[in-house]
């Protein structure tokens, strides 16, 4: 029973992990990643780690929701319902992945692994709690302080303006002549449209979407939405 569950969950974890980089939508990708994590959480339960297993599911559900939000903010093709393939150094990466897997598998199989399984009936969660707030409190608290520092750093990094002016101050190279455009790479002015990647036909998608907008606004409505849809087509 345990073996069958373990086989099923590992297959799910690996399959989901592989799908992450194969599906054409960022939203689907992050939810596949979540499924992979949930499967690992399930394996954790089988490995008699009830707290870590369930906490993985809980944490990853929240984390992947946040991830999806960011996907949609930054990706071209936000709803992610048209095909996309954005990879570089593809063969090299496959090679590295396979070599890493083969190396670690070989190491696993060739090593004489120690065996000292968890005793049945051990108060695992209780012991973990005592450990967290006992001997290892310093480590636990360090993790907490690190998280706090990360939060502060994230807010500082992502805030548009700081106390002493614009947050990008200093990260943009100075102009070639005083007050001129910054040297180096010029930011695109198109508001983050990267529809060129992948070489797929985005025009038809734009059309479909504008049709949809019409459908929802009804006829004889203010033309604001129509202009917007027109813009989209122009960019596409």
């Amino acid at each position: 029973m345990t073996d069958a569950l373990f086989t099923g969950l590992s297959a799910l974890a690996l399959y989901a992990g592989w799908r992450v980089f194969r599906v054409d939508s960022m939203v689907r990708a992050s939810f596949w990643l979540m499924i992979s994590f949930i499967a690992v959480g399930g394996i954790g339960l089988l490995l008699s780690a009830p707290y870590i297993g369930v906490a993985t599911v809980f944490m990853m559900a929240v984390e992947m929701t946040v991830m999806v939000l960011f996907m949609v903010m930054f990706m071209m093709n936000p709803a992610g319902l048209n095909p996309m393939m954005m990879v570089h150094q593809h063969r090299f990466s496959i090679g590295v992945g396979v070599v890493a897997f083969a190396g670690m598998t070989a190491a696993t199989l060739l090593t004489d692994l120690p065996s000292n399984p968890v005793a049945a009936g051990k108060a695992i969660v209780h012991d973990l709690g005592i450990e967290l707030l006992g001997d290892s409190m310093l480590i636990f608290e360090t993790a907490g302080v690190t998280l706090l520092a990360t939060m502060v750093a994230a807010v500082i990094l992502s805030a548009r303006t700081g106390r002493f002016g614009d947050a990008v101050e200093g990260s943009v190279p100075p102009g070639l002549e005083p007050g001129g455009t910054p040297a180096g790479r010029v930011p695109e002015k198109s508001g983050g449209h990267h529809h060129g990647h992948g070489g797929h036909d985005h025009g038809s998608h734009g059309d479909g979407r504008s049709d949809h907008a019409h459908h929802h606004e009804g006829d004889g409505h203010d033309s604001g939405g129509h202009d917007h849809a027109g813009d989209k087509e122009k960019h596409a």
Partner: peptide, 25 residues
């Protein structure tokens, strides 16, 4: 029956957000 069943309920709550998002997306 788990020694951490209240955490499992928390996981259910978190997954509800995911499911509702999927349903709308």
């Amino acid at each position: 029956q788990l020694p951490t069943s209240i955490v499992l309920w928390g996981a259910v709550e978190a997954l509800v957000v995911v499911v509702v998002f999927l349903h709308g997306w």
